[in-house]
Design a protein around this nucleic acid. Structure first.
Length: 390
DNA sequence: AACCGACCTAGGAG
DNA sequence: ACTCCTAGGTCGG
């Protein structure tokens, strides 16, 4: 008595799978609330509702449940044209500017109300950014990207809510994706508003800043296993409560990258890396590059370049190794200076959307997406790691 | 200014 | 089942 899948509750829109891979995009560690409940069907909370998403080669299917909205969704703020003007002045080309500004087929039928499901989704998934064109440009400029991204098409940056994004990444320090996910879930269960229940499973919105700034939050979070991050969360929530709350965070979307980053780094528990994550993932700073252990590995890889070990035809490799070997020898740890230089290097390599490109390579580097037995690259990487430790 | 070491602990690898 | 170690860092000395 297999009950037939009820498809009728799903609506859909056109979206080529190369523009968006749900599995990679939702599970690569930029957002921590999406679960693949049934194979191929992703469930998560967004804008006060529970969403189910799935896809085939050409379409995205979506359904929502519940609607807990304290206030109108803030999704309407982005003026696409401003950013694109910036792009064009770099001369990276008219081609890039034009393609980004183009209306895409899967976006054409969006309504005008801001509280419309398709608008919420389109904003969150940033569908107005045409990913295939960006991949083509990154691949053109960077042979390494071309190679590594081959099996990782459709990895797209989400445009997250700054509050969720910020507190999730405060949890991320020295931590695994799996544990971060469970910590974020605990935040929601303990401090978020309940949205609805589906099949006996309760779903909660991400907590507000004020609820995280409440009495006894730090103690409770420690008890829940947050470790030293408990204090970071409590402290940052207090700071924000007294400094403009979430409106302040949203206002950083309008500020230049450097300023937004500096503001974020005033928060306890937010260093350069977490600040860059937030800039990239919820502040519209497409060029922000979080320099984490993966990126550091990447640089180690470059610095270890031995002819033959890596496909070294690449110009890029040579430049990077020439640039970074001396510094890596001097400093084993990631200094502020080195951090910035690494970011600048990739920005000049990949262009204004460098952070998006970084995310593709980051995803390709995640263990959970690596199937095959160790190939040349991972062997080299092992060596690189050993070197780094000693 | 540039380095450490300490900080918490659930998952996951071996 | 059971160690043992790691994991998208940050802070203060």
């Amino acid at each position: 008595m297999a009950a037939p899948m009820i498809e009728s509750t799903f609506k859909s829109f056109m979206c080529p799978i190369k523009e968006l891979r749900l599995d990679k995009t939702l599970a690569c560690g930029q957002s921590f609330r999406w679960k693949e409940n049934i194979p191929g069907t992703w469930v998560g909370v967004l804008a006060g509702r529970v969403w189910k998403l799935k896809q085939n080669e050409n379409e995205i299917f979506y359904a929502t449940h519940g609607n807990f909205m304290q206030q109108p969704t803030k999704i309407e703020k982005r003026p696409p044209t401003k950013k694109h003007r910036k792009l064009s002045k770099k001369g990276t080309t008219e081609k890039m500017t034009r393609t980004v500004e183009e209306k895409h087929i899967w976006c054409e039928n969006l309504g005008n109300e801001c509280d419309n499901e398709l608008n919420i989704l389109s904003d969150y998934l940033q569908l107005s950014v045409k990913l295939q064109d960006l991949y083509a440009q990154w691949s053109h400029k960077d042979p390494n990207f071309r190679e590594k991204s081959e099996n990782f098409q459709g990895v797209r940056m989400l445009r997250q809510h700054p509050v969720e994004n910020l507190f999730s990444f405060i949890c991320s320090s020295n931590n695994h994706i799996s544990r971060i996910s469970s910590m974020v879930e605990k935040l929601c269960e303990n401090y978020g508003e309940k949205i609805t229940e589906i099949d006996g499973q309760a779903y909660f919105a991400f907590p507000s800043i004020s609820s995280l700034a409440g009495e006894g939050v730090e103690e409770k979070l420690r008890q829940l296993g947050f470790g030293y991050r408990a204090k970071y969360i409590s402290s940052s929530a207090h700071y924000l409560s007294e400094n403009g709350g979430e409106d302040f965070l949203f206002s950083l979307r309008e500020k230049p990258y450097e300023e937004a980053k500096q503001q974020l780094m005033k928060l306890n528990g937010v260093g350069a890396k977490v600040a860059d994550c937030v800039c990239l993932m919820s502040m519209d700073k497409a060029g922000a590059i979080p320099v984490d252990t993966h990126v550091a590995d990447c640089v180690c890889l470059m610095s270890m370049d031995k002819a033959g070990a890596i496909p070294v035809d690449t110009h890029v490799w040579q430049i990077a190794s020439r640039d970074y070997i001396p510094k890596l020898k001097q400093s084993k740890s990631l200094t502020d200076n080195l951090y910035k230089e690494i970011g600048d290097h990739f920005r000049s390599l990949w262009g204004p959307y460098a952070g998006w490109a970084h995310s593709v390579l980051f995803t390709a580097d995640l263990k959970k997406f690596k199937r095959e037995s160790p190939d040349t690259d991972s062997k080299i990487k092992e060596k690189a790691k050993k070197k780094k430790v000693k």
